[in-house]
Each structure stands twice: as structure tokens, then as C-alpha cells.
């Protein structure tokens, strides 16, 4: 088929429209989500395709006050940033040691951390529940924070070990020759050097916990401690008694999605590479 070089072949002719259609579908879902969040429930079903005639900002007011998405957003923000900071504080030194301080334990411990990547949360959640219950840390955001940090260890340590391993050694050696202690070398040379990897690890961690549901569902009970995904589930549940309030629900959905979308538009390439590059290397 030497022709393919002069004329676009059938695969190309059909191919790119297909790829664009696939992408446009996702865009359409996002746009339609935004529009729906500004419509009255009646308009959502009567004219699903049309623009909202008068934007119903009231949907957001209802979601934020009556269903307390405001409180849930605050809980989630504190929880998620607290988790990311603590996760990095604990896993960056470990990853540095695993990639740069050579002992006979390194490869064993690295593999041991990697093992955790294959263990589904459903496997560990029962003993964790019993344990947290004993410690009075069920229905507590502190308890959930500890769990989030602990369960972030395998991926973050593994991710950062690879990253520290790829950094040049020379600066570290120079610092050591200048008399900096190993501890100081880590904090003042390596950590700033690894900044981009650490930021990527933090972003991935934040995104992962922003919509986390299983642990929140199991470990939180009271409504004032709900995270965003629990607030959404609660909203869904209430709709069965109070009648459908799809406008309010979508205002809640947008509250969850829009910060992630903003983050993605700003840091998209970094997020994509962080989540996928390791598989190709």
C-alpha cells in the first residue's frame, strides 16, 4: 500500500475523527455537567441540551449551605494537604536512603514496599477498623489522616526512590567534600534538587485523596466530619426522601471536579507523566 503516503488511507480518514469524537465526548460531559449545575431540576429534564435561561446560582447556595458542602470542602482541603505534607516528610528520607545509601538491605526493602502496591484496600480495611476502634480513632479526621498517610507509603516511597536514583551524584559528593554532614546534605542539597519529583508526588497524592471514598465511608460517621465524596453520597441519599434536586447535586459535583480541573489545566503534563512515565522507563 504505497498509496498511503500520497493519499490519506482509510484508517487515517476514519481514525482522526474517531479519536476526536472520543475526546469530544468527555468534553461534552464536562460542559454539560457545568450547565446542569446552573439549571432548575425541571429545565434539566425538559431541555437537557439548552443553555440555562437564567443561571440558578441558588443550586450552589443550596449545596453549600443546606447540604454543607462548605464544611466538607474545608475538611477535605485540610485532610488532603495534611496527608500530602506528612506523606512526603516521611517518604522522602526513606526514598533517599533507599536510592543513595547502599547497604545490603536496599533492594529487599524497595521490593517490600512495592509489594504494597498489589494489596487491595479491601484486604487491610477490617483489621484497620478494629485497630482504629481500639484507639478511639474511628469517626475522627485525625484517624483518617493517619490512615491516608500510612497507605500512601508504598506508592510514594516507590515513586520517589526512582526519582532520587535519577539525580546526579556530583553535587552530593561535592557537599560531602566541603564537610557537610550526610544529614545536612540531604536537607540542603538533595531535597531542593528533588523538588520537581517531590511536587509531582504531592500532586498525585492530593488528587488521589481528594475523591477518596472507601476509607472515608468506613471510618467516618458523623455528618460534620464528612469529606467531599461522602457529602455527595449523602446528598444522593437525601434525594430519595426530599425529592430529586439534580441541580443541587450537580452543583456539588462541580464543587468536587472544578478544583481538580483547574489543577489539571495548570499542571496537566506533570500529572500525566507522574502517573504513567514509570511504566515505560
Amino acid at each position: 500500500m504505497a498509496m498511503t503516503r500520497k493519499f490519506p488511507g482509510p484508517s487515517k480518514l476514519l481514525g482522526s475523527p474517531f479519536a476526536w469524537l472520543f475526546a469530544l465526548f468527555s468534553v461534552a460531559v464536562a460542559v454539560w455537567m457545568l450547565l446542569t449545575s446552573l439549571k432548575s431540576t425541571r429545565a434539566i429534564f425538559a431541555e437537557p441540551w439548552s443553555l440555562p435561561t437564567t443561571p440558578q446560582w441558588d443550586n450552589y447556595a443550596r449545596a453549600w449551605t443546606a447540604s454543607d458542602f462548605a464544611g466538607a470542602t474545608l475538611n477535605t482541603v485540610i485532610l488532603v494537604f495534611g496527608t500530602a505534607v506528612a506523606t512526603i516528610a516521611l517518604s522522602a528520607p526513606a526514598a533517599y536512603a533507599l536510592s543513595r545509601i547502599l547497604t545490603r538491605w536496599n533492594s529487599g526493602i524497595t521490593a517490600f514496599f512495592a509489594l504494597g502496591l498489589g494489596i487491595p484496600s479491601q484486604v487491610i480495611i477490617l483489621p484497620l477498623y478494629v485497630m482504629m476502634n481500639e484507639l478511639y480513632l474511628v469517626d475522627s479526621l485525625t484517624g483518617l489522616w493517619i490512615l491516608y498517610v500510612a497507605t500512601s507509603m508504598p506508592f510514594t516511597v516507590f515513586f520517589l526512590t526512582g526519582f532520587f536514583g535519577s539525580l546526579p551524584k556530583e553535587l552530593e559528593e561535592a557537599a560531602a567534600l566541603d564537610g557537610a554532614s550526610a544529614n545536612r546534605t540531604f536537607w540542603q542539597i538533595m531535597l531542593p534538587l528533588a523538588r520537581s519529583g517531590i511536587i509531582t508526588a504531592m500532586i498525585l497524592n492530593i488528587i488521589q485523596h481528594w475523591g477518596e471514598t472507601l476509607f472515608g465511608l468506613v471510618f467516618l460517621q458523623s455528618e460534620e466530619k464528612a469529606t467531599l465524596s461522602l457529602a455527595l453520597l449523602g446528598f444522593l441519599q437525601r434525594m430519595q426522601y426530599n425529592g430529586a434536586d439534580w441541580g443541587g447535586l450537580f452543583a456539588g459535583v462541580c464543587t468536587v471536579v472544578l478544583p481538580v480541573l483547574a489543577c489539571y489545566i495548570w499542571l496537566g503534563r506533570r500529572i500525566i507523566e507522574g502517573m504513567t512515565l514509570g511504566s515505560v522507563k
Binding site: 528520607p93 526493602i109 514496599f113 498517610v149 500510612a150 507509603m153 508504598p154
Partner: peptide, 19 residues
């Protein structure tokens, strides 16, 4: 070398206890 275990221990303990 002296830093190896102090650096790894917190993450490792958390991982063993919670995973």
C-alpha cells in the same frame, strides 16, 4: 550509613503496621 535506618524507619514502621 548511620542515617540509613533513621531515614527509613518511620516510613517502614508505618507501612508494616498499617499494611
Amino acid at each position: 550509613k548511620r542515617l540509613f535506618w533513621p531515614f527509613i524507619a518511620p516510613a517502614l514502621v508505618l507501612y508494616v503496621v498499617f499494611y
